[in-house]
Design a protein around this nucleic acid. Structure first.
Length: 226
DNA sequence: GCGACAG
DNA sequence: ATCTTGTCGC
């Protein structure tokens, strides 16, 4: 249900860097993206001990009820070693496979990892957005680049994440007094809208429901094949 | 040069 | 990411 232009798998680090350099100009930074999406997809990946096998999951939630209306999984092997900054090449192939198996078309992708908050402004969320053509946002649990101050302790507060003199994302408090999450634009979204969507998807827990349901799905799928 | 480094 | 005891907090 989710189409995609040719994804290219690099053979080494140099090739991966070249692909990022070629694709980053294709990121749509204007957006502003859907303000009231009907269906939002969450994407996550779980690894088996030893990291030789993985399960990628996509769950599609009805935003009115935050319940899962569609889901898909793909079990396989990591496509690339873990290299900070080249993380997408490890998980994107399996995630694209899972997206292909969806029977619904989501209005937005919520990715487990950064978008523009990346050394070359082309994190996992940008990569998935550009390859699928869908609006995408990145939600990271820990920072990769950037500095910030604050945000205030109350839910909804956020502070700009700054790197190299530019705002690359927002440090967002999704729960009162709890460690913030790192939100950045992936594709076809504005930062303000990305933050608004993440807050709407996380009414109760630190992480968005999309991420939580996808996390559960890929863990279960991995346990089922083990 | 040394350390840090999404998941 | 995953391996794991105890521990802190509501």
């Amino acid at each position: 249900m989710v189409g995609q232009v040719g994804y290219e798998q690099p053979a080494d680090v140099a090739a991966a860097l070249a692909i990022q350099d070629r694709l980053w100009p294709l990121v749509d930074l204007v957006g502003p993206g859907p303000t009231a999406p009907a269906r939002v997809a969450g994407l996550d990946v779980a690894y088996a001990e030893g990291g030789d096998r993985l399960a990628a999951a996509v769950t599609v939630l009805d935003t009115a009820t935050l319940t899962v209306v569609d889901e898909a999984v793909s079990v396989g092997r990591p496509a690339f070693p873990y290299v900070p900054g080249l993380f997408a090449f490890r998980e994107v192939p399996a995630l694209l496979d899972a997206l292909r198996r969806l029977r619904t078309l989501p209005d937005l992708l919520v990715c487990d990892g950064h978008g523009l908050a990346h050394p070359r402004r082309f994190g996992l969320a940008c990569h998935l957005g550009v390859v699928t053509g869908l609006p995408a946002v990145g939600v990271g649990k820990t920072p990769l680049v950037g500095t910030w101050s604050g945000p205030a302790e109350r839910r909804g507060a956020w502070a700009p994440l700054v790197d190299g003199g530019e705002v690359v994302g927002g440090v967002v408090r999704t729960r009162d007094g709890v460690k913030p999450v790192f939100v950045s634009v992936g594709h076809r979204m504005s930062l303000e809208n990305a933050i608004a969507q993440v807050l709407a998807l996380a009414p109760r827990f630190r992480l968005p429901e999309t991420t939580r349901t996808a996390d559960r799905l890929c863990r279960d799928a991995l346990a089922a094949v083990a």
